[in-house]
């Protein structure tokens, strides 16, 4: 850091004549920006009435289309819903019978019985495998 003390000279340079031409460059850029702004402003002045009319038409069209879409989508949804519900009720009603209901209940009971039987077999097998006397077990508990 010692060598830097008093060595704060600018180490950069620029292409020759850069600072002589820079003000001109800036003036040109400002002129072009002003021209762009002037043309935009003039164009806007000329097309202002047409632009306003066009904007009104577009705005009206957007509002109309949106409203129409909302109304139609509500209607469409309700038609689909009622059709779907009617069909579900018709199908279920036609396919349902008392016998079917009884079968389902009996089948459920049968499954529970089978499960109980399996559990009992498992316990008995365990007592046999472990050579545990059922009477002794009952005495202890």
């Amino acid at each position: 850091m010692e060598e830097l003390k008093g060595n704060n000279k600018n180490p950069f340079s620029v292409p020759e004549g850069y600072f002589d031409s820079f003000p001109q460059k800036i003036q040109e850029r400002i002129a072009s920006e002003n021209t762009e702004y002037y043309w935009f402003a003039r164009l806007f002045q000329v097309i202002k009435p047409q632009f306003a009319l066009g904007f009104m038409i577009v705005a009206f069209a957007v509002i109309a289309i949106t409203t129409l879409n909302v109304v139609l989508s509500d209607k469409a949804e309700s038609v689909i819903d009622s059709d779907l519900y009617t069909r579900i009720i018709e199908v279920d009603a036609s396919e349902f019978s008392e016998q079917h209901f009884i079968d389902v209940l009996l089948n459920d009971e049968k499954e529970i019985e089978e499960q109980k039987q399996q559990e009992t077999d498992y316990y008995i097998n365990y007592l046999i495998d472990e050579n545990i006397d059922y009477g002794t077990l009952m005495d202890e508990f």
Partner: peptide, 8 residues
């Protein structure tokens, strides 16, 4: 356009 020495 860098004219500085190695330190700079």
């Amino acid at each position: 356009y860098f004219n500085g020495d190695e330190i700079q």
